[in-house]
Protein backbone atom coordinates (compact mmCIF):
# COMPACT_ATOMS: atom_id res chain seq x y z
CA UNK A 1 0.00 0.00 0.00
CA UNK A 2 2.84 2.31 0.85
CA UNK A 3 4.17 1.97 -2.65
CA UNK A 4 0.88 3.16 -4.05
CA UNK A 5 0.85 6.15 -1.79
CA UNK A 6 4.48 7.01 -2.32
CA UNK A 7 4.49 6.77 -6.09
CA UNK A 8 0.83 7.52 -6.57
CA UNK A 9 -0.09 8.35 -10.11
CA UNK A 10 -3.13 9.76 -11.79
CA UNK A 11 -4.71 7.93 -14.69
CA UNK A 12 -2.86 9.95 -17.30
CA UNK A 13 0.46 9.73 -15.48
CA UNK A 14 0.21 5.96 -15.46
CA UNK A 15 -0.37 6.13 -19.16
CA UNK A 16 2.62 8.44 -19.60
CA UNK A 17 4.97 6.12 -17.74
CA UNK A 18 3.69 3.20 -19.73
CA UNK A 19 4.06 4.91 -23.10
CA UNK A 20 7.47 6.36 -22.26
CA UNK A 21 8.85 3.02 -21.19
CA UNK A 22 7.31 1.29 -24.18
CA UNK A 23 8.71 3.71 -26.73
CA UNK A 24 12.21 3.86 -25.26
CA UNK A 25 12.69 0.18 -24.59
CA UNK A 26 11.12 -0.75 -27.91
CA UNK A 27 13.54 1.54 -29.73
CA UNK A 28 16.54 0.18 -27.86
CA UNK A 29 15.45 -3.38 -28.45
CA UNK A 30 15.22 -2.64 -32.13
CA UNK A 31 18.74 -1.25 -32.13
CA UNK A 32 20.13 -4.33 -30.39
CA UNK A 33 18.26 -6.45 -32.92
CA UNK A 34 20.08 -4.76 -35.79
CA UNK A 35 23.49 -4.77 -34.05
CA UNK A 36 25.61 -7.68 -35.25
CA UNK A 37 26.39 -10.40 -32.77
CA UNK A 38 29.56 -12.38 -32.37
CA UNK A 39 29.11 -16.04 -31.88
CA UNK A 40 31.78 -18.46 -30.82
CA UNK A 41 30.06 -21.77 -31.16
CA UNK A 42 26.92 -21.86 -29.07
CA UNK A 43 28.04 -18.97 -26.91
CA UNK A 44 26.83 -15.66 -28.14
CA UNK A 45 28.62 -12.44 -27.30
CA UNK A 46 25.95 -9.89 -27.95
CA UNK A 47 23.83 -7.36 -26.16
CA UNK A 48 20.47 -9.01 -25.71
CA UNK A 49 18.82 -5.81 -24.53
CA UNK A 50 19.67 -2.40 -23.10
CA UNK A 51 18.73 -3.34 -19.57
CA UNK A 52 19.40 0.11 -18.20
CA UNK A 53 16.33 1.67 -19.82
CA UNK A 54 13.62 -0.29 -18.01
CA UNK A 55 15.80 -0.30 -14.87
CA UNK A 56 16.05 3.49 -14.77
CA UNK A 57 12.35 3.96 -15.45
CA UNK A 58 11.37 1.36 -12.85
CA UNK A 59 13.55 3.11 -10.30
CA UNK A 60 12.27 6.61 -11.02
CA UNK A 61 8.60 5.88 -11.66
CA UNK A 62 6.01 3.34 -10.61
CA UNK A 63 7.75 0.03 -11.32
CA UNK A 64 4.67 -1.88 -12.43
CA UNK A 65 3.75 0.43 -15.30
CA UNK A 66 7.34 0.92 -16.37
CA UNK A 67 7.97 -2.84 -16.39
CA UNK A 68 4.75 -3.62 -18.27
CA UNK A 69 5.50 -0.86 -20.75
CA UNK A 70 8.96 -2.21 -21.44
CA UNK A 71 7.70 -5.73 -22.09
CA UNK A 72 4.92 -4.49 -24.34
CA UNK A 73 7.38 -2.30 -26.22
CA UNK A 74 9.64 -5.24 -26.77
CA UNK A 75 6.85 -7.31 -28.28
CA UNK A 76 5.51 -4.54 -30.48
CA UNK A 77 8.70 -2.92 -31.78
CA UNK A 78 11.12 -5.78 -31.89
CA UNK A 79 8.84 -8.70 -32.60
CA UNK A 80 5.72 -7.57 -34.42
CA UNK A 81 7.36 -4.84 -36.49
CA UNK A 82 10.46 -6.83 -37.31
CA UNK A 83 8.50 -9.93 -38.22
CA UNK A 84 9.91 -11.99 -35.39
CA UNK A 85 6.68 -12.79 -33.59
CA UNK A 86 6.69 -16.26 -32.10
CA UNK A 87 3.11 -16.58 -30.88
CA UNK A 88 2.70 -18.21 -27.48
CA UNK A 89 6.45 -18.27 -26.93
CA UNK A 90 6.34 -14.49 -26.50
CA UNK A 91 4.59 -15.01 -23.21
CA UNK A 92 7.69 -16.43 -21.57
CA UNK A 93 9.84 -13.43 -22.36
CA UNK A 94 7.05 -11.03 -21.45
CA UNK A 95 6.58 -12.50 -17.99
CA UNK A 96 10.28 -12.90 -17.24
CA UNK A 97 11.14 -9.34 -18.16
CA UNK A 98 8.14 -7.85 -16.36
CA UNK A 99 8.79 -9.75 -13.15
CA UNK A 100 12.52 -9.02 -13.20
CA UNK A 101 12.17 -5.31 -13.76
CA UNK A 102 9.25 -4.92 -11.35
CA UNK A 103 11.22 -6.50 -8.54
CA UNK A 104 14.27 -4.37 -9.42
CA UNK A 105 12.14 -1.24 -9.14
CA UNK A 106 10.81 -2.34 -5.76
CA UNK A 107 14.28 -2.89 -4.31
CA UNK A 108 15.39 0.72 -4.72
CA UNK A 109 14.24 2.90 -1.88
CA UNK A 110 16.61 5.76 -2.51
CA UNK A 111 17.36 6.41 -6.17
CA UNK A 112 20.64 8.15 -5.34
CA UNK A 113 22.03 5.22 -3.35
CA UNK A 114 24.58 3.50 -5.56
CA UNK A 115 24.57 0.23 -3.63
CA UNK A 116 20.83 -0.13 -3.97
CA UNK A 117 20.96 0.71 -7.65
CA UNK A 118 23.66 -1.88 -8.28
CA UNK A 119 21.80 -4.57 -6.39
CA UNK A 120 18.56 -3.72 -8.15
CA UNK A 121 20.15 -3.84 -11.60
CA UNK A 122 21.82 -7.18 -10.93
CA UNK A 123 18.70 -8.68 -9.38
CA UNK A 124 16.49 -7.44 -12.19
CA UNK A 125 18.59 -8.84 -15.01
CA UNK A 126 19.52 -11.89 -12.93
CA UNK A 127 15.90 -12.87 -12.32
CA UNK A 128 15.13 -12.57 -16.00
CA UNK A 129 18.13 -14.68 -16.95
CA UNK A 130 17.70 -17.28 -14.21
CA UNK A 131 14.08 -17.83 -15.14
CA UNK A 132 15.01 -18.33 -18.78
CA UNK A 133 17.92 -20.66 -17.92
CA UNK A 134 15.70 -22.77 -15.69
CA UNK A 135 13.09 -22.95 -18.43
CA UNK A 136 15.73 -24.00 -20.96
CA UNK A 137 17.23 -26.69 -18.74
CA UNK A 138 13.85 -28.09 -17.77
CA UNK A 139 12.82 -28.12 -21.40
CA UNK A 140 15.68 -30.40 -22.34
CA UNK A 141 15.24 -32.45 -19.17
CA UNK A 142 11.62 -33.23 -19.92
CA UNK A 143 12.11 -33.41 -23.65
CA UNK A 144 14.70 -36.16 -23.71
CA UNK A 145 13.81 -39.67 -22.86
CA UNK A 146 16.47 -41.35 -20.77
CA UNK A 147 18.07 -38.03 -20.06
CA UNK A 148 20.28 -39.49 -17.36
CA UNK A 149 21.20 -42.48 -19.50
CA UNK A 150 23.29 -40.43 -21.91
CA UNK A 151 26.66 -40.00 -20.20
CA UNK A 152 27.70 -36.42 -19.69
CA UNK A 153 24.52 -34.98 -21.14
CA UNK A 154 23.01 -33.38 -18.03
CA UNK A 155 26.35 -31.87 -17.09
CA UNK A 156 26.95 -30.39 -20.51
CA UNK A 157 23.47 -28.86 -20.70
CA UNK A 158 23.85 -27.28 -17.30
CA UNK A 159 27.35 -26.13 -18.22
CA UNK A 160 26.15 -24.53 -21.47
CA UNK A 161 23.36 -22.71 -19.67
CA UNK A 162 25.68 -21.60 -16.88
CA UNK A 163 28.18 -20.20 -19.36
CA UNK A 164 25.49 -18.31 -21.23
CA UNK A 165 24.08 -17.05 -17.93
CA UNK A 166 27.45 -15.67 -16.84
CA UNK A 167 27.97 -14.16 -20.25
CA UNK A 168 24.54 -12.48 -20.20
CA UNK A 169 25.09 -11.18 -16.69
CA UNK A 170 28.42 -9.62 -17.66
CA UNK A 171 27.29 -8.02 -20.91
CA UNK A 172 23.61 -7.25 -20.38
CA UNK A 173 23.68 -7.06 -16.60
CA UNK A 174 26.85 -5.11 -15.91
CA UNK A 175 28.00 -3.38 -19.09
CA UNK A 176 24.50 -2.42 -20.22
CA UNK A 177 22.76 -2.61 -16.85
CA UNK A 178 24.66 -1.52 -13.78
CA UNK A 179 27.11 0.96 -15.30
CA UNK A 180 24.67 3.04 -17.39
CA UNK A 181 22.13 2.95 -14.56
CA UNK A 182 24.67 4.32 -12.10
CA UNK A 183 25.64 7.07 -14.52
CA UNK A 184 22.19 8.05 -15.72
CA UNK A 185 19.91 7.77 -12.68
CA UNK A 186 21.51 10.66 -10.73
CA UNK A 187 21.42 12.80 -13.87
CA UNK A 188 17.81 12.03 -14.71
CA UNK A 189 16.47 12.13 -11.16
CA UNK A 190 14.60 15.37 -10.68
CA UNK A 191 14.84 16.24 -14.35
CA UNK A 192 12.65 13.74 -16.12
CA UNK A 193 9.77 13.75 -13.64
CA UNK A 194 8.73 17.38 -14.15
CA UNK A 195 8.56 16.70 -17.88
CA UNK A 196 5.80 14.22 -17.12
CA UNK A 197 4.21 16.62 -14.69
CA UNK A 198 5.10 14.77 -11.51
CA UNK A 199 7.12 15.36 -8.41
CA UNK A 200 10.34 13.37 -8.11
CA UNK A 201 9.97 10.52 -5.67
CA UNK A 202 11.27 11.18 -2.19
CA UNK A 203 14.79 10.16 -1.45
CA UNK A 204 14.19 8.40 1.81
CA UNK A 205 11.13 6.35 2.29
CA UNK A 206 11.20 3.96 5.16
CA UNK A 207 9.98 0.90 3.41
CA UNK A 208 11.20 -2.37 4.80
CA UNK A 209 11.94 -5.44 2.82
CA UNK A 210 8.88 -7.15 4.31
CA UNK A 211 6.73 -4.44 2.86
CA UNK A 212 6.82 -5.83 -0.64
CA UNK A 213 7.95 -9.41 -0.16
CA UNK A 214 4.44 -10.42 0.69
CA UNK A 215 2.92 -13.82 0.06
CA UNK A 216 0.90 -12.25 -2.73
CA UNK A 217 3.95 -11.17 -4.69
CA UNK A 218 5.71 -14.48 -4.13
CA UNK A 219 2.74 -16.49 -5.34
CA UNK A 220 2.38 -14.25 -8.38
CA UNK A 221 6.05 -14.70 -9.23
CA UNK A 222 5.86 -18.47 -8.83
CA UNK A 223 2.59 -18.83 -10.72
CA UNK A 224 3.73 -16.59 -13.55
CA UNK A 225 7.05 -18.37 -13.74
CA UNK A 226 5.27 -21.68 -13.98
CA UNK A 227 2.86 -20.41 -16.61
CA UNK A 228 5.71 -19.02 -18.66
CA UNK A 229 7.42 -22.39 -18.54
CA UNK A 230 4.33 -24.14 -19.82
CA UNK A 231 3.90 -21.56 -22.53
CA UNK A 232 7.44 -22.09 -23.64
CA UNK A 233 7.04 -25.86 -23.65
CA UNK A 234 3.98 -25.54 -25.81
CA UNK A 235 5.72 -23.28 -28.28
CA UNK A 236 8.88 -25.29 -28.57
CA UNK A 237 7.62 -28.78 -27.94
CA UNK A 238 9.24 -29.87 -31.12
CA UNK A 239 12.63 -28.35 -30.60
CA UNK A 240 13.85 -30.99 -28.21
CA UNK A 241 11.94 -33.91 -29.54
CA UNK A 242 13.08 -33.58 -33.10
CA UNK A 243 16.65 -33.92 -32.05
CA UNK A 244 16.82 -36.90 -29.91
CA UNK A 245 14.09 -39.41 -30.27
CA UNK A 246 11.10 -39.99 -32.42
CA UNK A 247 9.43 -42.51 -30.09
CA UNK A 248 7.96 -39.82 -27.95
CA UNK A 249 6.61 -38.06 -30.99
CA UNK A 250 4.51 -41.01 -32.04
CA UNK A 251 2.21 -40.35 -29.13
CA UNK A 252 1.35 -37.04 -30.71
CA UNK A 253 0.87 -38.32 -34.20
CA UNK A 254 -2.70 -39.60 -34.16
CA UNK A 255 -4.66 -36.42 -33.75
CA UNK A 256 -3.44 -35.91 -30.22
CA UNK A 257 -1.80 -32.65 -31.15
CA UNK A 258 -5.12 -30.97 -30.49
CA UNK A 259 -4.61 -31.66 -26.80
CA UNK A 260 -1.47 -29.58 -26.97
CA UNK A 261 -3.10 -26.76 -28.89
CA UNK A 262 -6.12 -26.57 -26.65
CA UNK A 263 -3.96 -26.68 -23.53
CA UNK A 264 -2.00 -23.77 -24.91
CA UNK A 265 -5.14 -21.79 -25.60
CA UNK A 266 -6.49 -22.47 -22.11
CA UNK A 267 -3.25 -21.27 -20.56
CA UNK A 268 -3.28 -18.17 -22.74
CA UNK A 269 -6.86 -17.39 -21.77
CA UNK A 270 -6.12 -17.88 -18.09
CA UNK A 271 -3.13 -15.58 -18.22
CA UNK A 272 -5.07 -12.84 -19.98
CA UNK A 273 -7.80 -13.18 -17.35
CA UNK A 274 -5.32 -13.00 -14.48
CA UNK A 275 -3.50 -10.01 -15.91
CA UNK A 276 -6.79 -8.23 -16.43
CA UNK A 277 -7.83 -9.01 -12.85
CA UNK A 278 -4.57 -7.70 -11.46
CA UNK A 279 -4.88 -4.58 -13.53
CA UNK A 280 -8.42 -3.77 -12.48
CA UNK A 281 -7.70 -4.56 -8.81
CA UNK A 282 -4.70 -2.27 -8.80
CA UNK A 283 -6.68 0.49 -10.40
CA UNK A 284 -9.52 0.11 -7.94
CA UNK A 285 -7.18 0.25 -4.96
CA UNK A 286 -5.48 3.33 -6.25
CA UNK A 287 -8.71 5.05 -7.09
CA UNK A 288 -10.10 4.43 -3.63
CA UNK A 289 -6.94 5.83 -2.11
CA UNK A 290 -7.23 8.86 -4.30
CA UNK A 291 -10.86 9.46 -3.47
CA UNK A 292 -10.13 8.95 0.24
CA UNK A 293 -7.44 11.58 0.07
CA UNK A 294 -9.77 13.97 -1.63
CA UNK A 295 -12.38 13.45 1.09
CA UNK A 296 -9.79 14.09 3.76
Amino acid sequence: MKLNVERKLTQSQKMMVFVLSMALFGLSKMITEILPSNEIGPIEFSVSYFAFIPLILCVLFHPLYAALGASVGKIIFADLLMGDFSGIGELEGFIQLTVGMYVAGLIVKNPLNKVQLTIAALVGVGMDQILSSVVDITKVWIGIEGFDAVPGLPESIVLLEAVSFVNEMVITGVLFGVIPTLILVPRLYGKIEPLLGMKPREKRVNASMAEFVKPGLITIVIVLGFVSMIAEFMAELDLNFAFWTSDFLLQFENGYEWIGISAGLIVLGLVLYIVKKIFSNKQQVEETIESNKRVL
Binding site: S12, M15, M16, V19, L20, A23, L24, L27, S28, F50, F52, I53, I56, F176, P180, L184, R187, L188, K191, I192, L195, L196, G197
Partner: peptide, 19 residues
Protein backbone atom coordinates in the same frame (compact mmCIF):
# COMPACT_ATOMS: atom_id res chain seq x y z
CA UNK B 1 24.15 4.23 -24.50
CA UNK B 2 24.81 7.89 -23.73
CA UNK B 3 22.53 9.01 -26.55
CA UNK B 4 19.65 7.65 -24.53
CA UNK B 5 20.06 10.42 -21.97
CA UNK B 6 18.75 13.24 -24.20
CA UNK B 7 16.50 10.70 -25.86
CA UNK B 8 14.78 9.90 -22.57
CA UNK B 9 14.14 13.55 -21.80
CA UNK B 10 12.84 14.31 -25.28
CA UNK B 11 10.60 11.27 -25.32
CA UNK B 12 9.26 12.17 -21.91
CA UNK B 13 8.25 15.57 -23.21
CA UNK B 14 6.65 14.10 -26.29
CA UNK B 15 4.88 11.43 -24.27
CA UNK B 16 3.31 14.03 -22.07
CA UNK B 17 1.94 15.92 -25.05
CA UNK B 18 0.54 12.73 -26.55
CA UNK B 19 -1.06 11.51 -23.36
Amino acid sequence: VLAFYPMMLNTAKRTRTTV
